[in-house]
Simulated scan of single mutants.
Amino acid sequence: MIQPLAYIHPEAKIAPNVVIEPFAMIHKDVEIGEGTWIGSHAVINDGARIGKNCQIYPGAVISSTPQDLKFKGEYTLTYIGDNTIIREYATISRGTEEHWKTEIGSDCLIMAYSHVAHDCRIGNNCIIVNNVQMAGHVHMGDWAIIAGSSSVRQFVKIGAHAMVAGGSLVRKDVPPFTKAAREPLCYAGVNSIGLRRRGFTNEQINDIQEVYRYIYLKGFNNSEALEHIEQDLPASSERDLIVNFIRSSERGIIKAPSASHVDSED
């Protein structure tokens, strides 16, 4: 169902059962999977590769030119996985020669007025809440959530199943399974409620909490903590994901809460 008032370039590749509402604009080098809905006044630019059963709401702009002065018009792409929802006026830039593509996984929710910049990699089942502003080259693991009006600095990594509080300034990497809150942003515990909702057992959650006791509560620096974790705690997929994330962090991870944080909350 393609409305006659929509503009669709004749070379765009539109699968069956795609609905394109009036005044939407679909450019030439675009592919849209079956069952996807494109709302009025949405703009799908060159390089967009949109999966099946997505919803692109009115005013959203997909695969726009990167807001990067180094970009010189090179051929780059934007990938959006199946069943992803992009709400009103969200903007997603395509890649640069650094990575050649921006990637958003399947079953994600990108809420209104959010911006995902060039070369970002967003995993599956992620939620980016209203008005989140994400700079270039950000990596976001599966099931991670960034709450509303947060700003994420370029090259930051947010681990799988992490939860970032609303209004946060994210300058450092946020390890997997954690909650991050306060200003400056710091560790606020394990995201145990989210993990239970996703089927993690109490034993798995307890093991994750024990890992983070070594990192944040025992007085070790990160290198010492990782050595003790690998020596003292049994191997598991969760333990190894945390260890590898911290070991590969280039920006450094968020810190433990300071005494002033604790005092202010008391």
Rank of each mutant, 00 (worst) to 15 (best):
Y214D: 08
E227I: 13
V190E: 09
I85W: 01
L233Y: 02
E224K: 12
T78S: 05
N83P: 05
G252K: 05
Y212T: 02
K157C: 14
Y216W: 04
A135D: 09
G252M: 01
G159D: 02
S248T: 13
I20R: 12
S258Y: 01
A165N: 14
A24P: 15
H228R: 15
I253S: 04
C186H: 13
N206Q: 14
E250Y: 02
M163S: 10
Y214E: 06
S40A: 15
N53F: 13
L226Q: 02
Q67K: 15
M134P: 00
I104N: 04
A90Q: 00
L195Q: 07
G166C: 05
I246M: 04
Q133D: 11
G123R: 08
R251Q: 10
H228N: 14
K218Y: 12
E21H: 13
A15H: 11
D82W: 05
I38D: 13
I254R: 05
G95Q: 03
K172L: 11
D46V: 01
E97K: 12
E97Y: 13
R182W: 15
H161G: 02
G35N: 07
G252R: 01
V174W: 07
L77P: 00
H228C: 11
T84Y: 06
I128M: 06
S258M: 13
E238T: 14
D266W: 03
A235K: 00
I205F: 04
G73M: 03
P175L: 00
I193M: 04
V30W: 06
L233H: 00
R49I: 11
K255F: 11
I229Y: 04
V262C: 07
G219F: 03
W37T: 15
R121H: 14
M163C: 02
I2M: 08
T84V: 09
V138K: 08
I20M: 08
S149H: 08
I92E: 06
G123P: 09
N222K: 03
E31M: 08
Q204I: 05
N125H: 14
V190P: 15
G39V: 06
F71W: 12
A225H: 05
L195A: 08
T84C: 12
A180F: 09
Y57P: 06
K218E: 14
I56Q: 06
I62H: 01
Y7N: 06
I146V: 13
I246D: 01
